[in-house]
Design a protein around this nucleic acid. Sequence first.
DNA 1: CTGAAAGCGCTAACAG
DNA 2: CTGTTAGCGCTTTCAG
Lengths: 333, 333
Amino acid sequence: MKDVAQRAGVSPMTVSRVVNGEAGVMPETAARVHRAIRVLGYQRDDVARQLRRKGQISQTVGILVDNVADPFMAALASAAEDVARQQGSVVLIGSSRDDLHREREVVSAFTSRRVDGLILIPVSGSHRFLRNAMATGTRVVCADRPAAGLRTDAVVVDNHGAAHGAIAHLIAHGHRRIAYLGDRLDISTIEERYAGYLAALAGAGIPADQAIVRHGLRLGADAAEAVTGMLAHPDPPTAVLASNGIVGLGVRAALPPGTALVGFDDFHLAAQLDPPVTVIAQDPVAMGSTAAHLLFARIHGDGSPPRTVVLPTRLIARGSGEIPGPYGRQPLV
Amino acid sequence: MKDVAQRAGVSPMTVSRVVNGEAGVMPETAARVHRAIRVLGYQRDDVARQLRRKGQISQTVGILVDNVADPFMAALASAAEDVARQQGSVVLIGSSRDDLHREREVVSAFTSRRVDGLILIPVSGSHRFLRNAMATGTRVVCADRPAAGLRTDAVVVDNHGAAHGAIAHLIAHGHRRIAYLGDRLDISTIEERYAGYLAALAGAGIPADQAIVRHGLRLGADAAEAVTGMLAHPDPPTAVLASNGIVGLGVRAALPPGTALVGFDDFHLAAQLDPPVTVIAQDPVAMGSTAAHLLFARIHGDGSPPRTVVLPTRLIARGSGEIPGPYGRQPLV
DNA sequence: CTGAAAGCGCTAACAG
DNA sequence: CTGTTAGCGCTTTCAG
């Protein structure tokens, strides 16, 4: 910058003004500065800039997902990145891999770089450690699920209601023996979905049977094995609810035709399988962009109490969830 | 930091040493400092640190993909992020959306934040503008395709050979009338694939016919429409090569059974469709981690001439590419 | 409209 | 083993 100033015959302060497009520099002076910048290939150093401009925003936000490679998270992150770009900010990204310790490390690496805010898909466990960062001005918005032990904005869906609706849908199509196959119950979204499953059964007067309930499924293969085991039961399920995408795919691969299936999370080609798969779809793009908009509102000074935005889900009936059960069509509960 | 020093009864320099885990501080002094850090909730300011430590690495790298939401790119970025984390670096991510202007903006936002290096999926067009950044120490590694006008490390696949192999495969299964459906020809990987297609036909003495060649397909629907048009031709193709994943999916949706299909890029559920889809698979995880390893080698001082790493592709025969053609089984060309 | 002085929080280099 | 001094590149503040 000093070099540019010298070459343009002005002070560094004038260069600064030109670089940042501030008003009140004579057009001719500005032109001289621009020329010097071009010749010398000067680029503003945002690290030094940030240091001096204390309290101002750094135009950097962090996104912490559990796994960037997961299509849902990738879509969410991409939507958030779009908003950030519109706002002139860049995005630091990290994967927690469902590990609180790792999440904490990444958050710390982000905050020490003075991010203005964080979009967080929180893993399970207490997030008290974020209090410090929030107290010192880092804004936090949670997506997909709220962070335990922390009051923040959050963008979620009604998991309980969505699961309840899916079970009601299966009951209406004549099923009463409905299995639940699920991921780890300590993930709050999964817990809510399971609770919705139980509530819907209870509401219809159908007893829950642990023989056709499985938790902790992480891999498609595990889910396939679990459902195969259930089908060997003397009183096998005629329909299955899968708690999320991975489990749904695993179940589908092992499911004989004639058994109904509704799964959480839509996926590419769901409509092209045989039978086409009925799913409860979320909108990751809406989730990411909503979270980002909330975050930037906070960064720009919104000091209202934390909000929770509940995004809608859609039951997309494609066939697998409409396979008739043994009790015939029922009125919707 | 001054506050911590005061509270621990030491100088800021000692705090710095403790914070950075440098040797040569009395354990007892260090303990006092640690206590003060905990009480005050102090966290190192990496912005100030970076400013002072000029010439040292910032432990920040940038990844620029065309679209984070694309599963191939998401897998690549995720693998690169893993490597970065092992190296103690954080990752800035951005999407170019195939727009050179936007790519340039994002690169500039990254370099002004002093990234140590960049993993780049370059869009088409000249990348001379990166010369400056490279001259001032920013390392650049390209993935998927090289950057025009720039000598950098690159991690690619043999697109020409892979397309050639796919066509040879179709010819060996009795096809001679083979259509090509492709994305924009100005994308270098796509151009290479098309060249491989032409070369394989020429090698087998089959004339290329522009009536069954289409370029510039960006959407699945466009690809579907294009292939439908070709099938209405008086001499319709008996087999199709799709230049990439999107095109392949579009083609598949519109293709009558009996027409063979080989597509670039593997996808989830390819094996579960009917017929299962034969693809030329790349390994995005290997590409991302190889690119990251090359990048960090450069960051750590590797000054050898730029290298291009060619990763293997695999033709995964699942059925759609083995549908027999009218000429019966042929020896492989 | 432009410039001079000071300092953001940290660490390199050098003393003790 | 610990401290002092200086300065990274920029911008805030105040003066012309």
